[in-house]
């Protein structure tokens, strides 16, 4: 089975109280545990203990976690990581609260990723027996779960190859300079399941270790607009949208948390399949790929990272 999905995103925030107002009151995530300068949160439709970790001090991404199906998958990934030539370190149960033992890997891009096979089971807010459509008392946007993360890389090709070779991700979409230079990835969208992406990478100078955004999953255009309305009420800075991506066909708003980390609400998009051909985007059409309706690239989307 290998990697099931993106499990958690651990981000740094400058002000925990402001971050709580955003991730709890605006996004509607639920605080599960607070230890020292870290807060662990989950969405209402997630079953495991947490999917977002906030750590006070700095900005950007501290690490990203991927859940695998079974303990043996850790061994396979460890072996493949060594063959690939990246630094790994075993982690023990409890290194991260409520997370099993696993493996910590330093990507070619410098990002830290962790793979684990178990998290404390908490259950969703609607349960598993005759579940309601959603909890009656959602807060703010009421995002059900995280969707994906986009990381910055000085060199997308190498880190993309890591995810394909070691994690057995498949390539859903890809941005290249032009059709005569198909070997060069300027950006890539990679999936392990049926989402358009679990992880994406974008190329830029001094982008290693950086976060472009983490995304929350919503359903449908009307929930995207509703999210935008709540962002307006809560004075959340907007980067782009509401609009629809050409890439993945997801509906979207990009916005910033109180520390300047970009977030996205992402809805729908097509069902990705392992045997679906990779969609190619050429650089001259990137504006339509990112923003299919407006078709003009803004001055911040590819340059503001934390």
């Amino acid at each position: 089975m290998g990697v099931l999905r993106l499990g958690y995103v651990h981000v740094r925030v400058t002000d925990m109280e402001a971050a709580k107002r955003h991730y709890i009151n605006t996004m509607g995530f639920y605080p599960m545990l607070e230890v020292g300068n870290k807060l662990y949160l989950k969405g209402w439709d997630e079953f495991d203990h947490h999917s977002i970790v906030l750590e006070e001090g700095g900005v950007g991404v501290a690490k990203v976690g991927f859940k695998v199906a079974k303990p043996d998958d850790i061994d396979v990934i460890e072996s493949k990581s060594r063959t690939f030539g990246v630094e790994t370190q075993r982690m023990t149960k409890g290194d991260n609260p409520d997370v099993s033992d696993g493996l910590r890997i330093t990507l070619p891009s410098g990002h830290i990723v962790e793979v684990y096979h178990d998290q404390t089971y908490v259950g969703s807010l609607v349960g598993t027996v005759n579940p309601q459509l959603f909890p009656r008392e959602l807060v703010g946007i009421g995002a059900p779960r995280i969707d994906h993360a986009l990381l910055g890389c000085d060199d997308v090709n190498t880190t993309e190859k890591f995810f394909i070779d070691v994690f057995d991700f498949y390539q859903v979409e890809r941005l290249i300079p032009d059709l005569d230079h198909q070997d060069c990835s300027l950006a890539t969208w990679l999936s392990s399941g049926n989402r358009g992406h679990d992880i994406a990478l974008i190329q830029g100078e001094n982008y290693d270790k950086k976060l472009h955004h983490l995304a929350f999953q919503l359903e449908g255009w009307s929930d995207i607009l509703k999210a935008g309305q709540i962002m307006s009420i809560d004075d959340v800075p907007i980067d782009m949208g509401p609009t629809q991506h050409g890439i993945t066909r997801g509906k979207t708003i990009y916005y910033f948390d109180p520390s300047g980390n970009r977030n996205e609400v992402f809805a729908d998009g097509y069902v990705a399949q392992r045997d679906r051909p990779t969609m190619l985007w050429t650089a001259d059409q990137v504006a339509r790929g990112i923003n299919a309706i407006n078709r003009t690239l803004n001055e911040t989307f590819t340059t503001a990272l934390t």
Partner: peptide, 27 residues
Amino acid sequence: IACKRGGCGLCRVHVDQGQISYNAHVC
């Protein structure tokens, strides 16, 4: 400007003269 929250650093300017303070922590 992008994040408006002191995180992305795109809005760098130079203060030629005078004093400023910050309305929130800038890391």
